[in-house]
Amino acid sequence: MMQTENKKFITKLWLLLISLTLFSAFMAERSHPGLLSVLIMAGVLAFKGRIIVDYFMELKQANPVLRKLMQIYFYVIPTLIILSWLFPQQIAEWTAL
């Protein structure tokens, strides 16, 4: 019974991830580049990463250090996406050789 519920839950997550991917593709093709679309894309990436780490890799109930190590990836990369879109010149200045 528990396994059946788990299977249904995982299947729903898979369909949600597919839907978010199709939404991202739609955004890429149809939307105008702008802060809102960048924020949405960063949010979608953070959410997808969290789902895979917590439920596909089953880290939700696992060692908190390991879970945080994996989760932090999907805080840092979306943040870098937003920062690199908002402040490209400053980043270029700070990293110029």
């Binding site: 679309s37 960063a42 895979i52 596909f56």
Partner: peptide, 22 residues
């Protein structure tokens, strides 16, 4: 299984960076 999920995680990061965000 865990290693394959890691490969998936890398791809879901690559996809928006290279194909979506402009």
């Amino acid at each position: 299984a865990l290693y394959w999920h890691m490969i998936d995680l890398a791809w879901i990061t690559i996809f928006p960076l290279l194909y979506v965000i402009r």
